[in-house]
Design a protein around this nucleic acid. Structure first.
Lengths: 238, 238
DNA sequence: TTAAACAACTTGTATTTACAAGTATAAATT
DNA sequence: AATTTATACTTGTAAATACAAGTTGTTTAA
């Protein structure tokens, strides 16, 4: 019954090394073991090891230097919401709380939706929910999410208190976020946004419109996120 | 004398396919030739072809689907400044003009610089310049750049009118931007920012602080970019 | 007619091997 | 002592091969 899909070796090594870097077993400026050493240590061949290292480099955990080795980066991850992908959670190690503002419920899609929708999506209707995310007690994100109601039975009756939306999708529906695209704007806070983020009207807030792709063909997750960057800024790599 | 460093095969294929996608030879929704076909067409082996395709997928030009093939994405690239990397230029195919506000000149680093600096950088002093970038006649980016004055002879006397800063660095100093990190905030426009971007004071603008890595060890390029997202929004992938 | 099984594709993962190219250290030479 | 050279590392590129796993269309059997 359980998914238990075999995890590829390069993914396992990626997770191990990532965990070690996050846990400060490897610190900023340290050199990772050489590729050949990693091969010996974990019983893999070099292409496999290199795939893990390439992914780590891509996510900014290491920098590779030809002739030298892999330098651990371990940068001060502020709020890495821009680099959500795979197993990386949206926010670093900070104290993050989530408050549900609008519980998940089925509704028709809003008119003039921020992204074009497929016919299948339009016909299915959407599950809508709104959440406020607090970092160290401060409201920082006001997140309005939409997802097409395709093959997601009993979704609206699940409890979202402790687990993230991503976790629910992954554990109960085997839906994984693979990547996505987003638009970013600076706008003035008003109405619900200023109220939820405890901001004076007219304050500048960041507005992200995101479309996230999943491993399920034709199933996307959409978010409109208002972000108070006064205290915490958004961090990303490119 | 010329660099003429041999370009790897996977890079060549990447450039060819990217060019074809941008030139609409492959259109949105099209399927790329299969990996084996590409091997035959370009006389490469599958690992090489796969490396090119992986890079394309990473940059959002294609989406790979196991069992099916490589789907061309060709998304509406608004202003993809978030996805600058390698050969990709900062702005899509729009009419972009650059106006120099402060010509490159040598100066000491500002106090409380936005990123920590190495000793070598501090001792070298920095080259500072300010530019305004106009998209379709509208001022959109106000860009303040800094770079350590390390091995960049006669830099301040070069002409920047037509060529981008990246192009100058690449062609005259063999310096290539490899990637970087950035902080993003929404702030209120004021002073020079509102003036250059033709905005009323208090309007919301996007503020990016970027640190770009180069192929030269210890040489970084820093930018503080103010961006009017009223008309054009910033686009990115993750 | 319908449904299951199969075959022929596709991409994903992994091994093995080889050499090129960049870096650092130690040895040899001047 | 200072410089050059050799060497032993490192990562980068590339080939040839094998099988797993997902997708699609066709054939076969009920």
């Amino acid at each position: 019954m359980s998914p238990e899909r075999s995890v590829p070796q390069y993914r396992k090594l990626y997770e191990i090394l990532r965990r070690h870097i996050l846990d400060n077993i490897y610190s900023e400026g340290d050199m990772l073991p050489s590729e050949n050493e990693l091969c010996r240590l974990y019983g893999m061949t070099r292409p496999t090891v290199r795939q893990a290292l390439a992914n780590l480099a891509n996510d900014g955990f290491i920098k590779k230097r030809q002739g030298k080795g892999s330098l651990v980066h371990r940068f001060s991850r502020e709020i890495g919401i821009l680099s959500v992908s795979g197993t990386t959670s949206a926010v670093g190690e900070r104290n993050l709380r989530t408050r549900i503002i609008v519980k998940p419920h089925l509704m028709p899609w809003p008119e003039d939706f921020m992204f074009p929708l497929t016919l299948l999506e339009k016909e299915s209707g959407c599950i809508h929910m709104e959440r406020l995310r607090l970092v160290e007690q401060d409201p920082v994100f006001y997140d309005i999410s939409y997802i097409a109601s395709i093959n997601l039975p009993r979704f609206t009756s699940r409890k979202f208190e402790d687990r993230s939306l991503f976790a629910i999708l992954r554990d109960h529906y085997q839906v994984e976020i693979k990547g996505g695209e987003q638009r970013i704007r600076a706008i003035k806070a008003s109405g619900k946004t200023s109220r939820y983020l405890s901001l004076a009207k007219g304050q500048a807030v960041l507005h992200l419109e995101r479309k996230m792709e999943t491993n399920v063909d034709g199933l996307f997750l959409y978010s409109s996120i208002y972000c108070n960057t006064g205290k915490y800024s958004i961090f990303g790599r490119f």
